[in-house]
Structure formats: C-alpha cells, structure tokens
Design a protein around this nucleic acid. Structure first.
Lengths: 142, 142
DNA sequence: TCAATTTAGTTAGGCGACTAACTAAAATCC
DNA sequence: GGATTTTAGTTAGTCGCCTAACTAAATTGA
C-alpha cells in the first residue's frame, strides 16, 4: 500500500493548520499586548499564581531557557513579577500582575473565538470525533 | 452551552500535537543536517527546481523575509544555490544542489516515519475521517 | 518619454523555541 | 563536615517566523 505523504498527509494538514492558527492567533493576541506563547504562560499563572519556573516549564512543555528569557520580557512589559524564594534560593516564584490579569481576560475571549472559528460547520458529533482522534494522535507522539 | 476552552479544546489539542510533532521532527531532521522548515523548502524544490523566491513564498505560506534569510543559510550549508534571473533582474531562481537532493531523500523517509507515528492505531476509516475533519478545520482558518 | 506605482528581495530587529555551557544553591554521600 | 552530584535558572548563540523599512528593477500611465 502506497503511503500518503507530502501535501495529502495528516502530518502536513496539521502543519498547515497550526501555521494558520498561529498566524490568526498572533494577530488577535497582539491586540491584547502580548505575543504568541505568552498567552499559555498567563493561562497557567491564572490557574495557579506564584508557581516556580520549573513548574511552568513542566506544564508548558518548553525548555527552561525559553521561559527564562520570556519571563524577562514579560516582567519588562509588566505582565508578571518574579520573586526569589527564600526557602530555596535557587528558585523564583512567578506572579501575575493586575495588567497580566487584564490581558488574560482578553486571552480567554480570544481562545474562545479561535475555537469557534476552528469548529465552524462541525456538528457536536464531528467535534467529539475530531477531539478523540486528536487525542489518539497526541498520545502517539508522547 | 458552556464552551470548551483551555486544556480540553480542539485548539489546544492542535497546539500540543504540533509542539510534539515539531520536536520529534526536528530531532530526526537534524540527523539529515537540516533544520525544521528547511524540509518543506527542499520538498517544493524537488517538485519543481529553479523556482523564484516569490513562488516558494506562495507555496510555503511564509513571508519573503523569512525565506530570504533561510536561503542565505541553506546556500551556506550547501543545500541550494541562488541564481539571478537575467530576464528579470529583480528575481532570483533557486536550485537544489546534489547535497540538497540527498538531504531530501532522507526527509521523505522522515516524513513517512512521522506519518506512521501519527496514525498508529487508527484504521483506514478513522484516518479518512480525521483527514476530512482536518481539511474542514483548515478551510475554516483560510 | 518620464514620473509614479507596483513588484521582488534584502536587511534590521523582535519573539518563541532549542541546545550547550555556565553559575549558584541544595541535596547526597562517604 | 566536606567533596560530589543534582537541581534551578541564566546566558550565549542558532533557527524559524514575523513586521517594518528599505533598495532596485519592472510596469503603468499621463
């Protein structure tokens, strides 16, 4: 059996979708004063404030180095603050600022809007099916 | 109806999948001596050699600026060559080198391997369903 | 014909993401 | 208790990707 590849593969469809999703998302996020990637960080901080950098790294599935420079920028832009932990002087705890909270409100709206765009025209059953299949794919990658 | 968001949304699943897919892909591609993103360029060149930069930009859905620096690097690493077009001195034509062709052979194998990983455990019908749903999502984004 | 506009690419600078090499602090172990 | 190892983060450097500003060449249009 000849395998699909290139243009027609699921892999390529995913790449295309992510490219477009990211582009659309970035346009909207820039209106909230943040950059793509920072939204996820603010999401996790809004779930639990004052986490360590390592904790965020684990949840966000990114490298320490990535988040490190990201936090420098986000502190500079006033979205978060970083406080050294006294009980363990290696670690820093990250807190979301009021400005960050305001930004996150916009982010939540943007995510909902993005989701609506993505699933436009799909009925509940199709959404469920897609969700299940994507979960299977994700599992395959982990 | 409460909308799904955050962790459980299709948008988030797609982000997760793409992150993992990209990571896995990058590991394999680095063994072929190229970086993520360069594979797609070599793919389009292998389909049609000697294209203009604009032509590649259109197919790859990226900005001229992105491909411009990318081509500088890929010419430096010996994957492609760039030749000024005499009939239109604004344009350059991009050619894949022998080394680039060798790299592409590896890329094709990597893509097939990636596809296999992605769809592991899904039967033909599920693959078809997923493919159709992803196409619908992609259409929603365009 | 010659100025104005469009088109093709490049350069500069910023962000997310990565690896590798590093510092500093905590934990472990002899 | 002191040396070794592990853990937490940072810094430097590379890439892909983007926007904005720029150059140069082709096209259009009065």
């Amino acid at each position: 059996m000849k395998q699909k590849s290139g243009q027609t593969s699921i892999s390529n469809l995913l790449v295309q979708i992510c490219k477009h999703r990211r582009n659309k998302s970035n346009v909207l996020l820039s209106e909230a004063g943040i950059y793509g990637g920072q939204d996820i960080l603010l999401y996790y901080l809004s779930i639990e404030d004052g986490q360590t950098v390592s904790s965020l790294v684990e949840k966000m599935c990114i490298q320490q180095a990535t988040i490190s420079t990201m936090l420098v920028r986000m502190q500079a832009s006033g979205m978060i603050t970083k406080v050294k932990d006294n009980s363990d002087k290696r670690t820093s705890r990250v807190f979301i600022t009021e400005q960050g909270k305001e930004a996150y409100k916009k982010i939540a709206k943007i995510w909902n809007a993005m989701e609506k765009v993505l699933i436009k025209g799909l009925d509940n059953e199709q959404q469920e099916t897609l969700s299940n299949l994507l979960r299977a794919v994700l599992k395959n990658l982990e």
